[in-house]
Simulated scan of single mutants.
Amino acid sequence: MNPHSIDTEQQPFVLIWEVTQACELECKHCRADAQPDRHPDELTTEEGIALLEDAADFGEGQLVVLSGGDPLAREDLVELVEYGTELGLRMTLTPSGTASLTPAVIDDLADAGLKRLAVSLDGATATAHDEFRGEEGSFESTMAAARHARDAGIPLQLNTTVCEETVEELPALADLAEELETVLWSVFFLVPIGRGRILEPIDPARADRVMEWLLEQANERTFGVKTTEAPQYRRVAIQQHSGGSVDTVDSDDRDGIGRRVGIRAGDGFAFVSHLGQVYPSGFLPEPAGSVREERIVDIYRDAPLFERLRDEDQFKGKCGACEFKHVCGGSRSRAYAYTGDPLESDPLCPYVPEGYDGPLPLETFAIPEEPV
């Protein structure tokens, strides 16, 4: 399944289930504000199985990402991966870089049918990464797990957070991704929620320059590159590959990164929390329903919040006026984090549509002290 072979009004390209918030790490950017212990009201094994059965109704090959916290805090993790695989789901995992991700566990996950393991590296050295993750030894644990997963035949994805603290690490991390034989580098542009409110994002102009550099990496490296919460990557790609005009893009595909449509919060993307609440994204914590009360398929397709987020004509400010809104649309999560309205403009994007004379997003990143 690829992003331009599905109808994102009917099916998410990515369905994330946060199986737990429990985690040993105290990462500076943590969306989940993870805690040491599991929550007593987490979805049970039986409820998780029901969720996976419902997810299978989206269609063959639905991609499911098990995230956390640290998913390995759940004893039933391998069972869930195996059951989802039997249902025809493409089961993937984003574990924490701790000692819990042992070679034996990785082998069990491979036997259960895990399709991809996504590990996080936010620094190319132990010093830089462990400082960001709040745990000495995290870098070495992550590297050892990545190498064992590769040797076990599990495709490897590398996740990296971009902010002022990490941006200078990107070139060395690209080299590390090559060394680890990763299939995809997923680069997350900071959204200030959870613990991430203490971090400083890069400014909009620099964000565009980083994306131009990422496009170079995508062309030169053996691995693919995608951005998370930075759909302007598609706008930057179009400007580089199509003379700057969205009108010259082949409607069949050709945004320069192999996707006809953008994947945004609520449009190609959905998130189920450890308590069963359904959000457009883990970075847009506005609930649209609960899988304990409704089927995930029905919430994704029919919840008013999801329907609004899929209607680019409802976008406000310069995002609403932008000629790139149907291939980009801005980060709805970042708009929500700064304004409380997911339909507002994304303040990370410096592009101003020609002839637009309305209000601009925040001139500076005045990060809210508390969630809006």
Rank of each mutant, 00 (worst) to 15 (best):
W185L: 13
A337T: 12
A321H: 10
V65K: 00
Y233C: 03
E136T: 06
D298P: 02
L80V: 01
T339Y: 15
V278E: 00
P40W: 08
M143C: 10
D341G: 11
G137H: 05
H39A: 14
R254I: 03
G113H: 11
D341H: 10
E79C: 01
M211K: 13
R301Y: 07
G123A: 03
L89R: 05
H241C: 05
G84R: 10
G97K: 03
D70R: 08
Y279F: 15
F271C: 07
D54I: 07
A207I: 13
L158C: 06
L80S: 05
G258V: 11
E307M: 13
D76H: 08
S333P: 07
A32Q: 02
I238C: 02
C23Q: 05
E24Y: 03
A152S: 14
P192H: 09
R38G: 13
R90H: 03
P342V: 04
T92W: 03
E60V: 05
V291G: 12
A128R: 15
F283G: 00
D247Y: 15
L25V: 04
R259I: 13
A22W: 04
D311N: 14
L66F: 09
G48F: 04
F324Y: 12
I257M: 14
G88K: 00
D41F: 03
G59E: 00
L190V: 10
P353A: 09
E168G: 10
V119R: 04
V372T: 14
R90L: 10
P368T: 05
P287D: 06
E165L: 15
A335Y: 08
E344K: 15
G266E: 08
L215G: 07
T161I: 13
G123P: 08
L362P: 04
E75D: 15
S67D: 13
Q157E: 14
G258E: 11
R310W: 10
D111Y: 06
D313Y: 01
Y300D: 05
T44G: 08
D151I: 00
F269M: 15
A303W: 12
H4W: 03
I193R: 13
S186G: 07
P280T: 05
F189K: 04
F58C: 01
V372R: 13
A32K: 00
L63K: 00
P171M: 11
S5P: 02
S100T: 14
T8F: 08
R116N: 08
G266R: 06
W185T: 06
D108L: 10
A149I: 00
Y300P: 02
Q11T: 14
E75L: 08
T98L: 05
E323F: 07
D33H: 07
E18D: 05
D357G: 11
R38W: 09
F58S: 01
D70Y: 04
R310A: 05
S5H: 09
T45L: 09
G330R: 00
E131G: 09
P280W: 11
Y83Q: 12
R310I: 02
R295F: 01
T20V: 04
P201L: 05
Q62K: 02
W213G: 14
G320N: 09
R264S: 11
E47A: 12
E363P: 06
D122S: 07
S138T: 09
G289H: 03
G329A: 07
S281C: 15
P350R: 13
L43G: 05
P361I: 02
P36I: 09
A174F: 12
D311F: 01
Y336T: 02
